[in-house]
Nucleic acid binder design. Sequence first.
DNA 1: AATTGAGCCAACCGCACATTA
DNA 2: CTAATGTGCGGTTGGCTCAAT
Length: 253
Amino acid sequence: MGRQPCCDRVGLKRGPWTIEEDHKLVHFILNNGIQCWRTVPKLAGLQRCGKSCRLRWINYLRPDLKRGALSEAEEDQIIELHARLGNRWSKIASYFPGRTDNEIKNHWNTRIKKRLHLMGIDPLTHQPIDKEKYQHESDDKTELLSTITETYDKRNETENFIENANDISLPNNMLSENINEELWNKSFKTMSTCYSPSISLEAEESINFSTTSSNVAAAPAEEEDSVQQWMDSIFSCAINQLEEDLFLLRKYN
DNA sequence: AATTGAGCCAACCGCACATTA
DNA sequence: CTAATGTGCGGTTGGCTCAAT
């Protein structure tokens, strides 16, 4: 048999927390710590389910929470992380001590999405939205051109990476010996912010890359095929993007 | 002054995965 | 090994506030 039921939902309170409830929860956790969320409400004298207590603590009562609005620098970092990680809010929040995933998610949905739309960027893909339309609607064409030029420069970095990667014997030694850390970091960063977030994430998680070592940690043999596929995907994605941006550059210049 | 709509955010829901008996 | 439960996560919603009409 399994564990005991999480909580009998009968008679449990829901909705906004009162000051008294907050006080009880904080007092209990500061004095006893958290062993098991299921027992917390019972021991703290709360008519709430453990899940609700956990949420309240994490999102509102934790003493290490950072209050106040997110700065523009934090917003920029969120955008960058979102491009790499997608909607993995808890992962993104882990880069911001004192901020919660809920807070960042809310901020993304209410503000950053709009900001990106105004900039003509699709918040989902982080790619320019219908560039021709954007060009029409934008009051400042120069801004668009500089955006494209900047993107194009990043693509050039990628192109260099691809050329260098041709010298690497794939897949056998790819991860163990031949990748130059600086080149890798530079290219990985470029790709992860400009191209497919899911691919970059997969890469980040599947490859145990040590930032202090000059080499990349060896991948298990069974992963080499998928790594090869990943590299192929990135290269083809990068090349498509390059072609698209070259086309736009020629068009608008 | 009353109404309406947008913005914001705390909290809930449901799911997936981990853990335990 | 299996089933039940715990935990954490992302998506969604409900209600509050405030500005515009």
